[in-house]
Design a protein around this nucleic acid. Structure first.
Lengths: 217, 217
DNA sequence: TGTACATCAGTGAACGCGCGTTCACTGATGTAC
DNA sequence: TGTACATCAGTGAACGCGCGTTCACTGATGTAC
């Protein structure tokens, strides 16, 4: 029922009904702290101080710290799915460039939303934390799979790799590069290539290996 | 100077000089806690209780919690380098199977040493934490690079990819699969392939793309 | 339109707890003579 | 071999602090009539 109430029309503005949109404000404050100190770097109490409410206030919205974290991760996967989907553009103008754009969108998300990324992948939330989180994760992965299926469609039947396997590979390559080299925070390693170039090359070589290279596809 | 003192000959045994090998014991206790609760899941105080010493004892060995964590990560990279090196076997009996073994060793390490793996990659230690840590990381990566160089050597000059780029790709692929699907703790995702099979296939397709496939190499 | 009431978001004080860190100390060990 | 001394790993008590969580409460809002 919580979700059925309309939010404030002006983003960030108060509506005058007590705090207005406390749960939203708590999420934003937690994101700021995660961006600065990592997913373990904030406390429930610290978040209430940042928002300017009493330490008991969040209990009206979240059972505990983990529930807040899970909600942040869920929102993160929703935004992530939207970003990947926007890059994919239903495979327009052509599957290959659209596919590359999805990979770049993965890195762009990790860099521009390090707090969401950390909540999604580094918060060590148990897999059964919430249905909403699992479903949001699934929706994001579905975009990758969709892009892989469209690319595979260009191959003759006998040379088609399993779409699930290919999408897991793509996820792993993008995630590996994002996790090791592409995070927005200071943990970046010193390598003489941008994560973007590194991933682009990795994808091209992989696609070549599948027979989907520029020449062969 | 701390390191010049000989450790106990019997592993885990006390030597009778006060605790004996407290810093070792602190590291082991911290590893147990990290394995259970993640890299943020232990406190200095908790570690002293597990070992059975006073809360002030660790200060003789580690400046603070972060210094202990950095030492654990450094030890982890040393063990990791040793594991990769043992799998590589100087490229014997042949570069390709030895190379595959390195990838499998990456996954085996992530699974069998989740606490070290978490300290190495998920503890968010600042990159300038310690020289020893940076050097140990470099030594582990050097094994990957060495394996890539040996494989590349089988290609004609004009078709050789840059060894650094290739080793970063290999690192990213192995790390992506380990991080998403191959950790020893409960965070595993439900996919219908083992991480080992997934990585093996990913590497083969990538090597095919480089012209290093079974047929072409 | 006006009033009485139900709802429930947020208050603020309180609690017990574990934390990191300090300090002067103790006592086992190693060694100089 | 024996003694006196220096070293330093570990003690244990103490501190102030921020934490999560509870509770009866208050007061703004929405609504029934």
């Amino acid at each position: 029922m919580r979700k059925s109430k309309p939010g404030p029309d002006e983003p960030g503005g108060r509506r005058g009904y007590h705090h207005g949109n406390l749960s939203e404000a708590l999420v934003q404050a937690a994101l700021d702290l995660i961006a600065k100190y990592g997913p373990a770097g904030f406390s429930f109490a610290e978040v209430t101080r940042a928002v300017g409410v009493s330490p008991a206030a969040p209990y009206r919205h979240f059972r505990d710290r983990d529930a807040l974290m899970a909600d942040i991760a869920r929102r993160g996967f929703d935004k992530f799915a939207a970003a990947l989907s926007a890059a994919w553009q239903d495979g327009q103008p052509a599957p290959l460039p659209a596919f590359k754009a999805v990979g770049q969108a993965y890195l762009a998300f990790a860099r521009s939303e390090p707090a969401y990324f950390a909540a999604m992948f580094e918060a060590r939330l148990p897999p059964d934390t919430s249905r909403e989180l699992a479903q949001a994760t699934e929706r994001a992965f579905a975009i990758l799979r969709q892009a892989c299926e469209a690319l595979i469609a260009g191959l003759p039947d006998s040379k088609r790799p399993p779409a699930l396997m290919m999408s897991l590979h793509v996820w792993a390559m993008a995630h590996g590069i994002a996790a090791l080299f592409g995070r927005g925070d200071g943990a970046r390693r010193n390598v003489p290539m941008t994560p973007e170039d590194l991933l682009e090359a990795n994808m091209l070589i992989y696609l070549d290996g599948l027979g989907l290279g520029d020449g062969g596809g």
